[in-house]
Design a protein around this nucleic acid. Sequence first.
DNA 1: GCGATAAACATACAGACTGTATGCATGAAT
DNA 2: ATTCATGCATACAGTCTGTATGTTTATCGC
Lengths: 197, 197
Amino acid sequence: MQQKTKPRSNQVRSETTQATLIAAARRVFVEKSYAAAATPDIVVAAGVTRGALYHHFADKRALFAAVVEAEAAAVAATIEAATPAGLPPLQALVQGGEAFLDAMAVPGRTRLLLLDGPAILGRAAMDAVDERHGGRTLHEGLTAAMEAGVIRRLPVAAVTTLLSAAFDRAALAIEVGGDADEYYEALAALIHGLVLK
Amino acid sequence: MQQKTKPRSNQVRSETTQATLIAAARRVFVEKSYAAAATPDIVVAAGVTRGALYHHFADKRALFAAVVEAEAAAVAATIEAATPAGLPPLQALVQGGEAFLDAMAVPGRTRLLLLDGPAILGRAAMDAVDERHGGRTLHEGLTAAMEAGVIRRLPVAAVTTLLSAAFDRAALAIEVGGDADEYYEALAALIHGLVLK
DNA sequence: GCGATAAACATACAGACTGTATGCATGAAT
DNA sequence: ATTCATGCATACAGTCTGTATGTTTATCGC
């Protein structure tokens, strides 16, 4: 038995409450989708009250944004861990791509980052999230490959966006039972198609 | 002045009511997004009551599905009108793609078909919509190009999905101010990258 | 350590929305 | 012409979101 309420500093109190809320919200958002996830459900899952939720987050949407941000950070961390620096540009692209697909296989991630995220927060906000986290990988990889003269010189931003979209859709397709190998092959073909002959 | 209520057959009554509702719903869904669009708003815009809405549609989501279906059909019609049959496979792909981007420039289409649609109806349902309408174009185009030996032999379904995703993202990017020419160039590069050397 | 202030919560409330149930009116069927 | 079914309007129950208010717990000056 521990003491009833061991005194905690306000900082850790806030941090743990927010973390618990974000974790619980993630579960409910994933299980029921953003629209169907009710704040009463979330706070019960977190073991707090709605008062705590609205004290720490402006509204349900802000809580969702925090969940998305954390999820994107987790994806980025996974990718970085899987792609050592110093690889040849082209291989870094393909390998990073596979790491991305692996990371997106974690249950709920496609729903959070690829379906509800864009709809609730907007494509622009999601782009900003990507930019803060993993998106850089692809962008820098393509830029490096172009400057190294490995692939065609093209508008980098546009190509990044389009390839990113292709990876996203591949993650979605694989999740619903699509043959992962076929998507790997198709993605590799798209990337290698950019290689200067 | 016309008579107060000229008798209409039940069929036309239903059809016109549904059409008015779908048109009004489209406006409200586009203006406020699916989540923020309230059925009271929609029925006021349509000049009917919520009773009529729930008589013709199971729920708000079903009404949204009808809007999406109509929108996808409109996009498909535009594309077909712009891409005469009998073009060489590769040119048909590029030209059809540009027609797609033009069609998606109609205000609200990206929100309906690329943001709210996937989130509310699910990616699978949107794929089914695509399949019933415009999606075939791309799929058949790629298949034809492959069988003609113009492009690499790859899993057609996967490549179709990925290119479709790229076109979708391009439409979104252009809508928020992205340079259309850059995306055209990048898309063309992706397609031409599949060409057998 | 002690009072004052502010932060972290909990509870209560107002407004709005969704879906259903019920009632009425108009076209269809015989 | 009467009966029935369809199209639609109104009323209602339950739920949710965001806010306002109250209470407890930590922080800060002394």
